[in-house]
Simulated assay, not measured.
Amino acid sequence: MSGPFSDVERSLFTAKEVLSEDYQPDQILERDEEIDEYRHALEDVLFGRTPQNIMLYGRAGLGKTAVTTYMMEALQIEAEERPDADDLFVHELNCNGKTVYSVVRALVNELLPETASDFPKRGLSTADAFEELYAQLDRQGGTHLIVFDEIDHLGDADTLLYELPRARSIGHITESKIGVIGISNNYRFRQGLSPKVKDTLMEAEISFSPYDASELRTILANRADHAFADGACDDSAVARAAAIAAKDRGNARQAIDLLRVGGEVAKKQEADSVDDSHIVAAQELVQRGRLRNRIRDQTQHAQLLLETLAYLEQQEETLARSKTIKTRYERVADSHAVEPLTTLKSIQNHLSDLHMLGFLHRTDRNRGESGGRYYEYGLDLDPEIVLDIRAEIEAERAP
């Protein structure tokens, strides 16, 4: 008896996982300059010296996390062969939705002996968590590189970036060394740090610029060779996916998604190969999916502001000043039982970040001495899609 899956074959795709977001390639293409900067910043580890702190900047999908994973793996292999290098430990944490306490607690639990109980979720202070972290670092010894992905999403990054880089110099640790690696999608993240943190961090900065069409084509051609059966992906599909992604945001993740979804479209149509028409058909599906992920990646208050702008857009009340947006945002926050941000400045900072990330468009108004200078904001997205995505996110959060 045949079932609903009995006629499913492995046509077109041979290794579809190569086109997934969590796939880590053995070779990083079109990031030679960034890898070289990274190598220079990390080389002290090979000689037993305290690592340099590093900050990586660039929009999502530009290879920051993939390059970091590649460099950490390569450094660990090399350190094992170097007589001057200490034992090297790499800790990777994503800061999205986390507090400083929960981040430090996660590090402590990673370092604790297997027989020890986990560090408490509540009941102790952040200072207690740091004290235990330092004790566990010295117990283990060696060099510790701590990677904080999406560090710009951490509410009090100042505390983390002030404590860890100076831990050895002020005697909190004596038997171990720490290097901090921060990954941020926000180019303005460093500007928001306090002067004392900037002085303490003294980090190497590595900026990841958007890929151009030629670079994306190289990356996609390599992925297509591994993901599809021989002859199952036309060069026209690779070229179209690269061109669309380059024109949009220069995002490799988007380009790879276009190729994967284009393959799925071709398979549904029972085509012999993926061509540029399948990529065009995949474009709207990918854009909606990527927008869902981009909105999901924002802080809760940034999401609430996007929802607010979507309502204002629907009611044709944009462009709107930050004061107007704040009033409406407070109602939206209240409808979700969320304590709203209280200051206009905090709202303006979030609006500025959302504008920089391409969610909003902004107009500079200058009314002279009587009206002053201010910004007005509008949503640069389809409000219906934003509200649909927000409803999905809230439904997932519901108990």
Rank of each mutant, 00 (worst) to 15 (best):
I244H: 00
N186K: 03
E175I: 02
Y187E: 09
L193D: 10
T174S: 13
L164F: 04
V197F: 06
A239R: 06
S176D: 14
G231N: 05
A229C: 13
P165F: 05
A243T: 14
I181R: 02
R249G: 14
P210S: 05
D199L: 06
V197N: 06
S176T: 08
A241T: 06
R168Q: 13
A167I: 10
H172D: 15
D248L: 08
G250K: 02
T200S: 13
S176R: 01
T200W: 05
A229P: 02
K247R: 05
R217G: 08
A242R: 00
G179P: 15
A204N: 11
A241H: 03
V238W: 01
A232S: 08
E205P: 15
E215A: 15
V238C: 10
E215P: 02
P210Y: 04
E203R: 07
Y187S: 07
G179C: 12
D199H: 08
P210R: 02
A246P: 03
K177L: 09
L193N: 08
M202V: 15
G192I: 09
N251S: 11
T200F: 04
I183K: 00
I219A: 06
I178Q: 07
Q191A: 14
D199P: 07
D235S: 10
I170V: 14
R223V: 03
A229K: 10
E175D: 15
T200V: 15
S236C: 14
V197S: 05
